[in-house]
């Protein structure tokens, strides 16, 4: 019963390596990539209209950060992403729970769910713009539609994969319907739901940006197309970096949520 020191130390060494390694490799790889990029542009004589040098992109991005209009566009994209994501989360989780619970509902909706899964939804974006206008509403809707399905399917899977043995425990303890939900079904499905949210938030950004490409005059997607049309390629790249950072921030926010809500689950990473 006291034979734990050796394996624990072993595990700890791995944990620290797991934590530290990306902090070294990521910057190094990034630096190498930027170096290759820079040398290629310099020595192959590529026009800066096709591929600007990293330094120029960096300068353009710093300039963008000082421009209040750029922040307005950023805010529009954040707004469309987060409201779309919020709608998708609420509807996806509720419908996912219902589908997992009510066999007839699943059977009824399943053909439609499959159909909407396989239809390339991005192709429908012009239609949304047509129906909901060039304003922010159409972007919110596109973001919501894209984020909705992974949240729905993961939630349904989570509720369905509740362990039968765990159910037996609750039944043998005479638990009420509400107690079974609160103490078993919800915590058991939570890691799955968070996986759905993780995929969903990334798709929500894509949805918002694609919506902005195709219509209206606000948002980072719109800004990117405007820079492209003006042949300001370095500024276009700056917008691209800006969007990517936004994506990272959202994704890591969900990751933090996971560590906070399901620390017991293996997906939350090793316990340090």
């Amino acid at each position: 019963m006291t034979a734990k020191p050796a394996p624990a130390q072993f595990a700890k060494r791995f944990v620290t390596m797991d934590g530290a390694l990306p902090w070294i490799t990521t910057p190094v790889l990034l630096a190498v990539l930027i170096l290759i990029w820079d040398s290629y542009v310099r020595y192959a004589g590529v026009s800066p209209l096709i591929l600007p040098r990293p330094g120029a992109v960096w300068t353009a991005w710093l300039e963008m950060l000082r421009d209040p209009r750029a922040w307005h566009h950023t805010w529009m994209t954040v707004y469309a992403t987060l409201s779309g994501f919020a709608y998708a989360s609420v509807i996806g989780v509720v419908l996912g729970v219902l589908i997992a619970r009510l066999r007839w509902l699943e059977l009824t909706l399943n053909p439609f769910i499959v159909a909407t899964q396989v239809i390339p939804k991005v192709a429908l974006v012009p239609l949304f713009v047509l129906w909901f206008g060039f304003g922010v509403t159409s972007k919110v809707i596109v973001a919501a539609v894209l984020a909705f399905f992974p949240i729905l399917t993961n939630t349904a899977m989570g509720v369905k994969s509740i362990d039968e043995g765990h159910r037996d425990v609750m039944v043998s303890l005479n638990a009420t319907r509400w107690q079974v939900f609160r103490r078993l079904e919800f915590p058991s499905a939570l890691p799955f739901i968070i996986t759905g949210l993780e995929i969903g938030i990334v798709l929500a950004i894509i949805g918002a940006v694609v919506g902005e490409y195709l219509g209206g005059n606000a948002g980072l997607g719109h800004l990117l197309i405007a820079r492209l049309n003006a042949f300001e390629t370095d500024q276009m790249f700056a917008v691209l970096i800006h969007m990517s950072l936004l994506g990272f921030i959202f994704y890591f926010a969900i990751g933090a949520l996971r560590k906070m809500l399901v620390p017991w689950h293996a997906s939350a990473g090793p316990r340090v």
């Binding site: 043995g165 765990h166 425990v169 058991s188 689950h265």
Partner: peptide, 15 residues
């Protein structure tokens, strides 16, 4: 109401 059960598997709640 007055019955406790131990199963073949521990069936502890991982959370």
């Amino acid at each position: 109401s007055d019955l406790g059960m131990v199963f073949q598997e521990a069936n502890l709640f991982p959370w």
